[in-house]
Amino acid sequence: MIPAAFDYLRPQTLEEAVNLLVQHGETAKLLAGGHSLIPALKLRLAQPKTVIDIGRIADLSYIREEDGRIAVGAMTTHRAIEASALLEEKCPLLPEVARHVGDVQVRNRGTLGGSLVHADPAADWPAAILALNAEVVTVGPKGPRVIAAKIFFIDLFQTALRPDEILREIRVPVTAKSVAYVKTVQRASGFAIAGVAVVVKAAAKTVSVGITGVAAKAYRATAVETKLAGQPLSAENIAAAAARAANRIEPLGDIHASAEYRAHLARLNTRRALGVAASRA
């Protein structure tokens, strides 16, 4: 319950934060909303020498439309996303997923950027970020970098973020209402046993499917997407495609769900999410 001692730095600008990160290297941890880092500090699973609090940096918390995409600042809380009228209108998958993250108190403090960087394999956001083909904008000593969502998640708690980079913004496309997130919750922790986010592009006759909680990292269910490309979203087609949701995946097994059950839920929730999204088209 009591973290190990650390030094605390509170940069005022992103540039200053990057410099501090370069200076302190891997002995430092960035603190955003703190809802991934502080639990780890309390259990002493993380014992950084230095904590760099980016919570006071101006303009990291915003949701705005830019060049036909929606930009979400990394420090935007789950709650702000949940309550955003702009997102409800232009990218409703994000508010829908936000409602599944943690609980009210966690959503009031936890941030989208913090959650993505933590890369918990059972977090909700990765499913949405993948299904939306989002872009992750980082800033480091060499300037900004844009990383596609599909290459952002590398493994359990590992992302493509370099040690001296800070996640600054998440960019998502404007979508129709035909999206859905269906989650089986790990009831003790609130994380996902199998969370499936779906974006149906009716005009292009394509779907994209992001799945979290099932494997060591969130993944795109490409086998499902391929099967449905160009096809009408009939119940039969959806069922046939959803059956591939865990293809070539090594599902995790633990006391909360065996690998077999997780794979089953991945398929089932994919079918259901596709059904819901299709019905919203």
Binding site: Y8, R10, L31, G34, H35, I38, P39, Q105, V106, R109
Partner: peptide, 13 residues
């Protein structure tokens, strides 16, 4: 004004 869990916020924050 927002409900938060005071165990997961540093006083400095």
């Amino acid at each position: 004004g927002q409900a938060v869990k005071a165990c997961t916020i540093l006083a400095v924050q």
